[in-house]
Amino acid sequence: MPYATIHVPADSLDAERKAELIARVTDAIVEAERTERVRPYVYVVIDETNRDGYGLGGTPIDITLERAARG
């Protein structure tokens, strides 16, 4: 059973975007497996993490994004 976990910041995707993401990831796995027979067994989890639970380059992501926004 193919299994994909996608980590995103909490509340960054609404239900419609989550559904689209699940569908696209499922399509990609089916394409990689080269058979539609795997589709019913593809398991996709969207794991929402609080924004303070991310880091990039050793810095919490909120600080990194704030610095990037400032230019």
Rank of each mutant, 00 (worst) to 15 (best):
T49G: 11
D27W: 00
T35L: 07
A28E: 14
V30A: 04
R51S: 15
E36A: 13
R39C: 01
G58W: 04
V45G: 03
N50C: 11
G55V: 03
V45S: 10
V45A: 12
G58K: 00
I29P: 03
G53W: 08
V42C: 07
V30C: 03
R51G: 14
V38E: 07
E48K: 08
A28R: 01
E36T: 08
Y43M: 12
I29H: 06
E36P: 05
V42I: 07
Y54N: 07
D47W: 10
E33A: 15
N50M: 14
V44Y: 04
Y54Q: 05
A32R: 04
L56G: 04
R34V: 12
V45P: 09
L56V: 13
P40D: 12
I29G: 00
E31P: 03
Y43C: 13
R34A: 13
D47N: 12
Y54H: 15
R37Y: 06
V42H: 00
R34K: 14
E36I: 01
T35E: 06
V45Q: 13
V44M: 07
E31C: 06
Y54K: 04
E31W: 03
G55S: 10
V44R: 06
R37F: 07
V30M: 03
G53L: 04
A32E: 06
N50K: 15
P40R: 07
V45K: 05
A28S: 15
G53D: 10
Y54R: 05
L56P: 02
P40Y: 09
E33N: 10
Y41V: 02
P40C: 09
V45Y: 14
N50S: 15
R51T: 15
A32D: 09
T35N: 09
V42D: 05
G58H: 03
E31A: 14
A28W: 07
L56C: 11
V30G: 06
V44W: 02
V44K: 04
R51P: 10
I46R: 00
V44G: 04
R39V: 08
G58V: 00
D52H: 14
E33G: 09
V45E: 13
E36M: 05
T26M: 07
E36R: 00
E33S: 11
V45T: 13
D52K: 11
A32K: 05
G53Q: 02
Y54W: 15
I46C: 02
P40M: 05
A28K: 00
